[in-house]
Design a protein around this nucleic acid. Structure first.
Lengths: 218, 218
DNA sequence: GTCTATAGAGCGATAGAC
DNA sequence: GTCTATCGCTCTATAGAC
């Protein structure tokens, strides 16, 4: 792995562990065993590093949130989306913890974020419409965009919510599944008949995965 | 107003305007036209100021979130709670923007927060049970606590969500009403018959208040 | 209660050698 | 591509005068 990539990976790890605010360029260099000068050879400053990490975040979403395919099973696709959300919420949780600060400091990053989130809300709306079309849920059209924002809000801020309620401000991968359960909870009261059963099953699978992780750790 | 109180009020204003991270003790003193030394006569450090502000936050909740009275109208009480939430989300929005950092730095404040939030979730559960008992909504008992957490998550992180989506990271009081609409949205799909109409009415009143504020500004 | 002055520490970022 | 050395800046917090 190139030094540049290593800086990115080390930064992500340290940001997730101690928070973006607490980690300086010196910490990153020191953790890697390189000099601060070397770090500044590869990146202009900390914002530059954050922009690269945001690029990875965008790539992850772009690869995993392909538009819905009407020929495939809706619930299977939903399950797939939720799976990649787990990865996203885990890998980039530091980003959500300091979203306001990070975006407030860097106008260019903010602009990128806005474009990206606008696309994202459209995609979530498409998924909700997919669920409605497949009669998994019944929902008024005027509530769809509101619900889409609630999904986005939940995904964005579930990890800060957990950290705020954890005694030592820690976060484990199984905590993430609690957030997925919450996303499913958002859909559940709209579900009708067979759809409700499918969502309950999905929620249960989520809880099972949470247990698997717990056992793997133990 | 005593210098001590003035420091608190100035701090809240500056934190809300520029974010807790960007504001130092020097900024606060300078804004007030006093010396940094004077500020340190009244408060040990920045954490000390934050603890006092958190005290105000707790007082506000304690005064406004009195337990439900079974003899009074449930919807009227709900409307009252939502009203005081508007004030809370507006006055202390800086707190939610840096929740992880602020709590991560100060173990004592974190401990206070944990006790407080545990009580809060119990109160939200009580409100949901009140709505269920009054047959405004129908909900499985096993979903109640999950929903209570969703309400808390929404209230806590609506303002950071808005800031992240605002072009200049600004927040106006009318933005807050959008968050209240989201909280009502959480209840809406559980509502049945007359309850649904009442919630829709409440949501509409919320949008009206939002317009009133807009006109007052213009 | 309030001020001035300042020590002490850490951070961001660069210059110049290798 | 990497290092050492360092400058300039900002922040916290305190000492001592008024």
């Amino acid at each position: 792995m190139s030094t540049k990539d290593k800086i990115i990976q080390t930064s992500i790890a340290l940001f997730n562990q101690h928070g973006e605010r607490a980690i300086t360029t010196n910490h990153i260099a020191s953790e890697m065993g390189i000099s601060p000068g070397n770090l500044y050879y590869h990146f202009k400053n900390k914002e530059d590093i954050l922009r690269h990490i945001f690029g990875l975040y965008q790539s992850h979403l772009k690869e995993n949130f392909t538009p819905m395919d009407k020929n495939l099973d809706v619930m299977a696709q939903l399950a797939g989306y939720l799976d990649s959300l787990v990865e996203l919420m885990w890998r980039f949780n530091f980003f959500y913890n300091n979203l306001t600060d990070i975006l407030g400091r860097d106008k260019e990053l903010k602009a990128q974020y806005l474009v990206h989130q606008a696309q994202l809300v459209e995609q979530v709306v498409a998924v909700i419409n997919g669920l409605k079309y497949a009669e998994v849920i019944a929902i008024d059209d005027c509530d769809i965009e509101e619900l889409a924002h609630m999904v986005k809000l939940t995904v964005s801020f579930w990890t800060p919510y957990v950290k705020a309620h954890s005694k030592d401000s820690s976060l484990t991968k199984q905590d993430i599944f609690g957030g997925i359960v919450k996303v499913i909870l958002l859909f559940k009261p709209y579900a009708r008949g067979e759809g409700l059963e499918q969502l309950k099953k999905l929620q249960q699978e989520c809880l099972n995965k949470q247990l698997e992780v717990e056992q793997a750790v133990a």
